[in-house]
């Protein structure tokens, strides 16, 4: 019996592990190696160039634009999304008909990111788009902008789409975390005369801390990416003049347009370490003072 159990476990695990190694781990490992070569993507051989590709990264102004934009996104997107998500989730706790809203908030999650980017591209159209038409309709015609073609607004416009598309998921995530908080805590707070803001700050936030932390990691990774929305929606893409360039787009262009797979791999490896560092830092930051509820 015990024997058969091992055989069953092996049979179930091995195919998955093999697939994982061949299609996930091996490409990762190959990217590390390729980042040290001048592979063009079509040649049968690659010349070893050492750390040359990494040295070039520092002098590539478009890549530096990308790093800057990703850093801005990393600061803005997670904080804005989590703030909105938490706010909406705690409102849902106290309001009637919240289930319906919860579903509505989740809608963007059902659409592919490419579809979202195309739709928002229409919304931002300077002449016929929903946004400018709406502004004109309410007499704010002076505020209309060529949103995606103005370097001052293009990145903000992209971030707004990223936030819009992910808030719904975090509303649901935080709602579940809030539901797990014992109702007595809220009742006790109410009896003690706590207002809704105090309740939110003193009870809800500390008790959903772990969910928030996980959300930070997910959103941080999403903010370091941003490729799909930028590629589909922006001028250039990545423009105007690098205003919305992201690392993923630089990587893609170098690999598939310029045939510099070695250099693109170096970008990928750099991004890998940035993401890994972010994940570890975010998870370590909130490691202490875990609360026990039950």
């Amino acid at each position: 019996m015990r024997h058969g159990r091992w055989r069953f476990l092996l049979g179930a695990l091995v195919p998955a592990l093999v697939l994982h190694v061949v299609f996930v781990l091996s490409p990762y490992a190959q990217a590390f190696y390729l980042s040290l070569t001048d592979w063009t993507g079509v040649a049968g051989e690659a010349r070893f160039v050492g750390a040359g590709n990494y040295a070039r990264l520092g002098g590539d102004s478009l890549f530096l634009d990308a790093v800057r934009n990703n850093a801005v996104m990393l600061l803005v997107v997670p904080i804005a999304t989590i703030a909105l998500g938490l706010g909406l989730a705690s409102l849902l706790r106290t309001r009637r008909g919240s289930a319906g809203y919860q579903i509505v908030y989740f809608f963007p999650q059902l659409l592919s990111l490419v579809v979202i980017a195309v739709l928002w591209g229409f919304v931002y159209n300077p002449n016929t788009g929903l946004l400018n038409s709406g502004l004109r309709a309410v007499g704010l015609g002076g505020l209309t902008k060529s949103w995606l073609a103005d370097p001052a607004f293009a990145l903000a416009a992209v971030m707004a789409v990223l936030i819009w598309s992910s808030v719904g998921f975090y509303v649901v995530l935080f709602r579940a975390a809030i539901d797990a908080i014992p109702a007595e805590l809220y009742e006790a707070a109410l009896i003690d005369g706590a207002g809704s803001w105090t309740t939110f700050r003193r009870i809800t936030i500390p008790l959903v801390r772990e969910s928030v932390q996980v959300a930070f990691v997910y959103l941080g990774i999403a903010a370091l990416d941003g490729f799909a929305v930028v590629q589909v929606m922006t001028v250039g893409p990545g423009g105007p003049d690098g205003a919305t360039e992201v690392i993923g787009l630089s990587l893609y262009r170098n690999a598939f347009t310029y045939g510099k797979f070695g250099y693109a791999s170096a970008m990928g490896v750099a991004l890998f370490f940035a993401t890994l560092t972010l994940a570890i830092l975010a998870l370590r930051a909130g490691r202490k003072d875990r609360l026990e509820l039950a």
């Binding site: 781990l25 091996s26 490992a29 190959q30 590390f32 190696y33 390729l34 592979w39 040649a43």
Partner: peptide
Amino acid sequence: APLLSACVT
């Protein structure tokens, strides 16, 4: 890594 990297090139 060295084992797997043999694939691409």
